[in-house]
Nucleic acid binder design. Structure first.
Lengths: 268, 268
DNA sequence: ATTCTTGTTCCGAAATTCGGAATTGCATTC
DNA sequence: GAATGCAATTCCGAATTTCGGAACAAGAAT
C-alpha cells in the first residue's frame, strides 16, 4: 500500500498542472519569455515546452509576442477575468472615496465584498505600489483572519456564517486561530465595537482594521478596510482611523445603493 | 488528402479546448453553474464534464463554490491577470479624467496603451454598463481599424510600425481595410489632422475618435478615445469632441509622466 | 561561407483520457 | 422512518492522446 502510485491524498498536479506552470512563467515575464527560457527554467525537454506553449496559444491563454520570439498572456484570459469580476463600476464609484482616505492617512485601503459565500477584494488603492502586491482585486480574504471578512461576516445570518465556517480555515501565522468558537467570539466583539481587526493573523508584522458598510436596507455586503504595519495601525490614533473609515463607509453605502439601483435599471 | 485526419489548416481546438469551453461557461455563470448544467449545455457525458471540472479546480482555474453544488473561477486566474496587466495605478490615475469626459458627453471613453508592439485597452469607462462589454481592459485593438490604435501608431518609428503591419490584420466589416499602403495613408492623415477615426471599421454602426497622448518627452505611448453609434459621434459637434479629448489628453500626459516617475522611484 | 543557437517536425512507446455503467450521497416526499 | 428521485462520484477496459529523443529547418552571429 505504501508503494501505491496513486497518492492517497491526491496532490497530483492534474492534467493541466504543467500548462499552468508554463502559463505562470509567461505571466511573470510577459512578452519576453522565449521557448528556450521555459525549457530550461522548468527543466522540460525543448519538445515538451514547445508543445505546451502551442497548446496554451491555441487555447487563447497565451499568444506569441509581435516579434515572434516570445510569448505573453492571451486576451481570452483577460476577458475571462473581467467578465466575472465586473467590479469596474464599483471601482469607479468607490475610487474617489478610497483615495480621500489614503491621502489623509497614507495607508493602503480596500473595499471587500461578499460574493457567493466568500469575501473577495473588490477595489484596492494604496499610496505605495509595492504594498498592492498582496491586496489585489479578486483575492479571497479568509473568514477567520482578515479584518474585512470579519466585518462582513459579523452581520450575516446564521446559515451564511455556518457555511463559511464549514470551509477549511487556513492557519498562516502563529497568531491565526481557526476554531469556529473563537471566530464566533471575534464576530461578537465586532458587533459590540462596530469594527473588526486583524492583528498579525495574516502576516506577522501587518495589521488591518475594517468597518462594515451598511446599506440603506440594513444589509451588510461590503467592508471598508485599512491595512499597514502593525505598530503604525494599532496605535493611539486608532479611534480616529475608525472614525474616518466609518464616515467614508457611510458615504460609500449611499453611493453603492444608488449604483446598484442604476445598474438594475439598465439591465432590464 | 481530403480525408486526412490532421486538418491541413490546423483549426483543432487543441488539448485545452474543452477545458476552455467549460471555463468560459463557468465565467458566464459564476458561482451558480452546476455539473449537470455543464454536461447538458456542452452536450458532454456527465463523467467527462466532471473530470474536466475537477481538472480545472486542481489547476486553480476554477473552484467549487461554498455550497459545494456549483463552481466559480479560481483566484489563481485572477492573480495571473492582475499580475501582468498592472494597469491598476493607471486606472486610478486616469479614472477621474475619463469620468469627466463621459459626464459631459455621455459616451464610452477609454485609454489605450502601446504594450509589446500591440495596442491594448488600459482603462475604460462608460455611462452605460452594457457598452462596456466590448471595450474591456486587456483587449487588443487592431492597428488597421481602431482609432485608438491609429492614434498611437501614427507617432511610432518605422521599425515598430513595420512590425505591427507584419502581423495579420483582421477584416471585420465591409469597411475594414488591411493593406499596408492604406494604413500608412490613414496614419499620415492622423498626423495632419491630429486625431484618428474609426468609421464602422470594427462594427458596422459604431464609430470612434481618438487623439494621441503626447508625453512631455515627445513620446506617444497612449491614446484617448471616445466611441459610440456612428451618427452620434461623427456629427457637426465633432470638433468640440476632439477639443475635449485633446484637453483631457494633455492633462493625462502630465499625470502619466508623473505617475511613471513616482513608480520608478518606488521600484529602486 | 560556416558555425551556433533557437524553433519545429517526426514517430514509436507509454501513459493518459474517454465515456458507459454502476454506486454513493443528499434532499425531498410519502 | 422508509422510499424515492436527482445529482455527483467512482470503476474500468478500450482507444486515443501525450511524451520526449532524434533528426530537421531557419536565422543570427562569427
Amino acid at each position: 500500500m505504501t508503494t501505491d502510485t496513486t497518492t492517497t491524498d491526491d496532490a497530483s498536479p492534474g492534467p493541466l498542472g504543467r500548462y499552468m506552470d508554463v502559463l505562470e512563467l509567461v505571466a511573470a515575464f510577459p512578452g519576453a519569455l522565449t521557448l528556450g527560457d521555459v525549457s530550461s527554467m522548468l527543466a522540460l525537454p525543448k519538445t515538451t515546452a514547445h508543445r505546451l506553449l502551442k497548446g496554451l496559444v491555441k487555447a487563447g491563454l497565451a499568444r506569441e509576442a509581435v516579434g515572434g520570439r516570445a510569448y505573453d498572456l492571451g486576451e481570452r484570459l483577460t476577458r475571462l477575468v473581467h467578465a466575472t469580476v465586473d467590479d469596474d463600476w464599483l471601482a469607479t464609484l468607490t475610487g474617489p472615496h478610497l483615495r480621500q482616505i489614503i491621502e489623509s492617512w497614507g495607508e493602503t485601503c480596500y473595499l471587500t465584498r461578499l460574493a457567493g459565500g466568500r469575501i473577495v477584494v473588490a477595489v484596492s488603492q494604496s499610496p505605495d505600489v509595492r504594498w498592492r502586491g498582496y491586496v489585489q482585486p479578486g483575492i479571497e480574504m479568509p473568514v477567520n483572519a482578515a479584518a474585512s471578512a470579519k466585518a462582513i461576516m459579523a452581520y450575516q445570518d446564521d446559515a451564511t456564517l455556518a457555511q463559511a465556517l464549514a470551509q477549511p480555515l487556513p492557519i498562516v501565522t502563529a497568531n491565526t486561530r481557526n476554531d469556529a468558537a473563537w471566530v464566533e467570539s471575534e464576530l461578537q466583539a465586532v458587533r459590540e465595537r462596530g469594527y473588526a481587526t486583524c492583528i498579525g493573523e495574516i502576516d506577522e508584522g501587518l495589521a488591518a482594521i475594517a468597518v462594515p458598510v451598511t446599506l440603506p436596507d440594513g444589509m451588510v455586503l461590503h467592508a471598508l478596510a485599512m491595512t499597514g504595519p502593525l505598530q503604525r495601525i494599532m496605535n493611539e490614533r486608532l479611534p480616529e482611523r475608525i472614525d474616518a473609515l466609518n464616515t467614508t463607509g457611510a458615504a460609500l453605502a449611499k453611493a453603492l445603493a444608488l449604483g446598484a439601483k442604476i445598474r438594475e435599471r439598465g439591465a432590464n
